[in-house]
């Protein structure tokens, strides 16, 4: 077993898209119950890295990987790994809110219903309620649980999507620029939420917004051109970067 602190271990991880190398020899440890931000200029591979952690990259043709990503010591790219099981442990929130065109209730219940033994169905009301509460959206939707989730605002939709992910009881939550499609107020709500969620979950968030990384994350990984340039505690890295490239990026000299 790995040390308890590091829930996710990425080791010498490379990813190829057809023959181009999109990620190169990335190694980093993602600690438990902390928020780790992945930053870098667009096209640097930060989303690709994030999507490697729940193997969503496999949905794209022509992707091949090398190296390991270990979740609680188990290589998720190892033989006989069940991606379904993996994705139930590693939840994901997408860049644009993507609720299903179903009711709010059905959205949150979806993952539970798809689980084969899961919890008893009569427990479902409770799961939905607690997930929505955890995602700080319960008060806004409790009277309209059976209305379509598509009627909600973008920020509300995103929080329903977070509730949907929480309902499956994941251990890790991946967030791919979860606020980039939202206005500042909705963004603030999501950031607040992230801050509270880390008490229970390990969170990895991709962001192109340095201030956001500074506000929400404990650790930061800086990626450029598919390589990990620097990884460390966020406050240290943003005030005293150890690498010239990092410094140039965070001072806004490119990006």
């Amino acid at each position: 077993m790995e040390t308890k602190h590091n829930r996710l271990e990425i080791r010498d991880f490379s990813l190829y898209y057809h023959r181009t190398k999109a990620l190169e020899d990335i190694s980093m440890s993602i600690p438990e119950q902390k928020v780790t931000a992945i930053i870098g200029p667009s096209g640097c591979g930060k989303s690709t890295l994030l999507r490697s952690i729940n193997r969503m990259n496999e949905l794209i043709d022509g992707v091949a990987v090398e190296g390991e990503i270990r979740l609680d010591g188990e290589d998720i790219y190892g033989r006989n790994i069940d991606v379904v099981e993996l994705r139930r442990k590693v939840g994901m929130v997408f860049q644009r809110p993507n609720p299903f065109p179903k009711s709010i209730f059905e959205n949150v219940a979806f993952g539970v219903r798809m689980g084969e033994n899961g919890r008893a169905k009569d427990n479902l009301d409770q799961v939905v309620e607690s997930s929505l509460k955890e995602a700080a959206i319960w008060d806004e939707v409790k009277d309209r649980l059976h209305r379509s989730a598509m009627e909600l605002s973008g920020g509300q939709q995103q929080r329903v999507c977070i509730a949907r992910a929480l309902a499956v009881e994941p251990e890790v939550i991946l967030m791919d620029e979860p606020a980039s499609a939202l206005d500042p107020i909705a963004t603030a709500k999501i950031e607040e939420l992230i801050f509270r969620l880390k008490e229970k979950y390990t969170i990895v968030i991709v962001t192109h917004n340095m201030q956001q990384a500074a506000r929400v994350s404990d650790f930061t990984a800086f990626l450029m051109l598919g390589k990990l340039v620097e990884f460390g505690a966020t406050d240290r890295m943003l005030t005293n970067p150890g690498n010239k490239l990092t410094e140039e990026y965070i001072t806004g000299r490119f990006g």
Binding site: R87, R88, G91, F110, G111, M114, A165, V168
Partner: peptide, 15 residues
């Protein structure tokens, strides 16, 4: 059917 919804379902651990 938007691709994002398929991704959403798969990410929730649907087969």
């Amino acid at each position: 059917v938007p691709q994002a919804e398929r991704a959403g379902a798969l990410a929730l651990g649907a087969t």
